[in-house]
Amino acid sequence: MRPNALGRTIAGLIVVAGLTAGSVATAGTSFAATATTARTAAAAQPAAAAATQNFGLTTAEAKNVQEFLADYWGYTDTIDGQLGTNSWKAFQRCLARYWGYTGAIDGDPGTNTIKALQRLLADDYGYTGAIDGVAGSGTRAAFKRFAA
């Protein structure tokens, strides 16, 4: 091999080694990015679910709830039939005052909010299930009666 050819061969091997190392590094990075993206997407799901949670109410029924919240509990947002964060904040104020809700007024209809809602629904709207914080079929049916 001539010296010039030898130099090109060595340079070529270095490039191939660099590309291979870069591919391995990129593979590890792309795997990590995919895992991070998957975790981020999974974490975003509850937030999206919490953004609007009608628990089986139609738009018209949810508008009735928003009108009740506007009349009595400081709801000032649009009456659009989508029980979002501001609707649930207003509902949590009601539930805190009369139905034993002790959590944050954060607009997230989580377990404690649902337990307080179930107490309200058990008192006047025919809910007979457990006060368990799960918005199952009995809770949803009683919530529809509340919203009617």
Score class of each variant (00 low, 15 high):
Ala104Gly: 07
Phe143Lys: 00
Ala11Thr: 14
Leu57Trp: 02
Gly12Thr: 01
Ala130Gly: 05
Gly7Tyr: 12
Thr52Glu: 07
Ile131Pro: 08
Lys63Gly: 03
Leu95Asp: 01
Gln118Lys: 04
Thr29Arg: 09
Gly56Val: 01
Arg97Leu: 07
Phe68Trp: 14
Thr111Gln: 09
Gly56Tyr: 02
Gln82Asp: 11
Ala51Trp: 06
Glu67Phe: 00
Ala142Asn: 08
Trp88Cys: 02
Asn112Trp: 08
Arg97Asp: 15
Leu117His: 03
Pro3Trp: 07
Ala90Ser: 13
Gly103Asp: 08
Tyr75Ser: 09
Tyr127Lys: 10
Thr76Glu: 14
Thr26Pro: 00
Phe55Ile: 04
Ala141Ser: 03
Gly103Gln: 09
Gln82Arg: 10
Leu6Phe: 04
Gln118Leu: 05
Leu120Glu: 00
Thr76Tyr: 11
Trp99Leu: 08
Ala141Leu: 02
Ala60Pro: 00
Ala96Trp: 00
Ala33Ser: 11
Gln45Ser: 09
Asn64Pro: 04
Gln53Met: 10
Val134Tyr: 07
Thr76Met: 12
Gly84Asn: 13
Ala51Ser: 05
Tyr125Glu: 05
Asp108Met: 08
Gly110Cys: 12
Pro46Val: 09
Asn86Ala: 07
Asn112Glu: 14
Thr76Cys: 06
Leu83Tyr: 05
Asp71Val: 06
Asp123Trp: 14
Thr113Lys: 07
Glu61Leu: 01
Asn86Cys: 06
